[in-house]
């Protein structure tokens, strides 16, 4: 076993508070590769792990809206002026007030679609099998258990001290795995 060996320790908790406390203490040990699996978004955990709201996904949706607005308007402009100019009661070919409705709907559609596809892309989904999560410890993370998975290097911190943190906060189950 060399100093650069990385290993992973998985701890299962019955309470979100114990999990958050554990995560906080592990960060105190200088560990940064901490991932938690929870049945619902735990606000304090996100704060502990310094996960921010917004970010690139929000900008992706804004960009989607912008693209949608341009495309939505342009297709109507192209239709009514460039390709098939139709004189209806002398109204201008570029009747922008009438075009805003269609452009508005397409703007929103593109924004939502950008968020929808952006979300799966950013999460790396669909991913039906993840070897790091191939353990029974994760089976109830989508229902009623809170699972922490921490990766560390042997030279960084001893396995035992991580185990102790898990045990101190009442982890129901602790597992070691290759990282």
């Amino acid at each position: 076993m060399t100093e650069n060996d990385t290993f992973a320790i998985i701890g299962v908790f019955a309470s979100s508070r114990a999990m958050v406390e554990t995560a906080r203490q592990l960060r105190g040990l200088g560990l940064r590769t901490i991932e938690a699996y929870t049945p619902y978004p735990v606000e304090q955990l996100a704060e502990t792990l310094r996960l921010r709201r917004g970010g690139p996904l929000a900008w992706t949706m804004a960009a989607g809206a912008l693209v949608g607005a341009s495309c939505g308007y342009f297709i109507q402009y192209w239709d009514e002026w460039l390709n098939y100019p139709l004189n209806v009661g002398g109204r201008p070919h570029n009747s922008w007030p009438a075009f805003t409705v269609g452009a508005f709907e397409i703007t929103l559609l593109f924004a939502v679609a950008a968020g929808f596809f952006g979300l799966w892309f950013a999460c790396g989904l669909p991913r039906l099998y993840d070897p790091r999560l191939d353990s029974e410890a994760f089976d109830r993370a989508s229902a009623d258990r809170f699972v922490l998975r921490v990766e560390a290097r042997t030279r960084q911190v001893a396995r035992e001290s991580i185990r102790q943190v898990f045990e101190a906060h009442g982890a129901e189950r602790i597992e070691e795995a290759a990282a």
Binding site: Y37, P41, L45, L51, L125, D130, A141, S142
Partner: peptide, 9 residues
Amino acid sequence: LGWRGSARH
């Protein structure tokens, strides 16, 4: 789609 409930996700 392989949703695992990771805090980042």
